[in-house]
């Protein structure tokens, strides 16, 4: 029984680490610009798909292909901000949601044209010999996912708390006009936030692709789960979003293992609803009062 639960937890953390990275991307953009970017899942898909295309199709070594693809996805993120979000400034929250949904459909369509409908796999970074912890097992790639996610999360944390640019982005989210008045280049900060989000998404995609495979429509479900995780943790708090991701992964895995695998997603959402009923701003979000 103990070994079983250990396995459930290991599985939950691996899946949760992916959700956490996607959720972190959601939270960064939300904090910088009050936009919920529903194309976040598409960044993940693009990262994985273009890496595979470059390494398998063009014969680049995996690390170089990954670097090029991350750079490309960052460009996509910047263009999204510049050409889709910035022009619609001042539009209502729902309008921006629809814009990002449009963007996600567009990017999916692009991936469909470029790479077709096939499912693609990626070689594992360091072999597929499972590591044993008692009766539970773990793939080296799982460690890559967890390790990669930890490094990225710590990096983002450092960026927001200890660098001028990071603090400037936070300032923009608190009060855009005030930030502008103290000399912060608000437009630039927005670009940095979207670029950072795209970077996180694409890296997440590359890290998990060897385990999960990928296809042009793989971003939809990841985006949905990432959004749920961000809400569970509390949108306003990037580290809350990360915690939300890990928690959602664990809930799903434990629900599948201990209760019913058919209803595990439903159980995840029921818990999410219950959390919201009692903490309307998520687990780690700050309660906000409406300004009158």
């Amino acid at each position: 029984m103990f070994d079983q639960i250990l396995q459930f937890i290991l599985t939950g953390i691996t899946v949760g680490a992916t959700y956490a990275l996607v959720a972190l991307g959601f939270a960064i953009i939300y904090n910088a610009s009050d936009v919920v970017n529903f194309s976040q899942g598409e960044f993940v898909m693009l990262g994985a798909m273009s890496t595979i295309a470059l390494s398998a199709g063009n014969g680049l070594p995996l690390w170089l292909a990954a670097a090029c693809s991350v750079a490309m996805v960052i460009c996509v993120g910047l263009m999204l901000q510049r050409f889709a979000i910035a022009p619609a400034r001042g539009a209502s929250v729902v309008t921006t949601i629809i814009i990002t949904i449009g963007a996600s459909i567009f990017l999916r369509g692009l991936a469909l044209l470029l790479w077709g409908k096939d499912i693609f796999g990626m070689p594992h970074f360091s072999g597929e010999v499972p590591l044993r912890i008692g009766e539970a097992t773990l793939l080296p790639q799982n460690l890559w996912v967890m390790g990669g996610a930890s490094v990225l999360v710590l990096g983002v944390h450092y960026f927001f708390n200890h660098t001028t640019h990071g603090k400037a982005i936070l300032a923009c989210s608190c009060n855009r006009t005030a930030a502008h008045l103290v000399g912060i280049n608000v437009g630039m900060m927005m670009l940095i936030a979207y670029g950072l989000s795209a970077l996180l998404g694409s890296l997440a995609g590359i890290l998990v692709a060897p385990i999960t495979f990928t296809s042009y429509d793989a971003g939809v479900m990841l985006g949905l789960k990432g959004f749920s995780a961000a809400i569970l943790g509390g949108m306003g708090n990037p580290m809350g979003a990360v915690a939300g991701g890990l928690l959602l992964g664990l809930i799903e895995s434990l629900a599948a293992g201990l209760i019913s695998s058919g209803y595990k997603d439903a159980i995840g959402f029921v818990i999410l609803l219950l959390v919201l009923f009692f903490r309307p701003s998520g687990l780690f979000g700050k309660a906000s009062a409406e300004r009158v």
Binding site: Q4, Q7, F8, L10, T11, G12, T14, V15, T18, A136, T137, V208, I211, T212, A218, V220, M221, L222, S253, A256, G257, S261, G262, K264, D265
Partner: peptide, 14 residues
Amino acid sequence: SYGAQDTDMTTQLT
């Protein structure tokens, strides 16, 4: 059972 977009079935298989 598992979902269409699930990425890890080790829980069920355990």
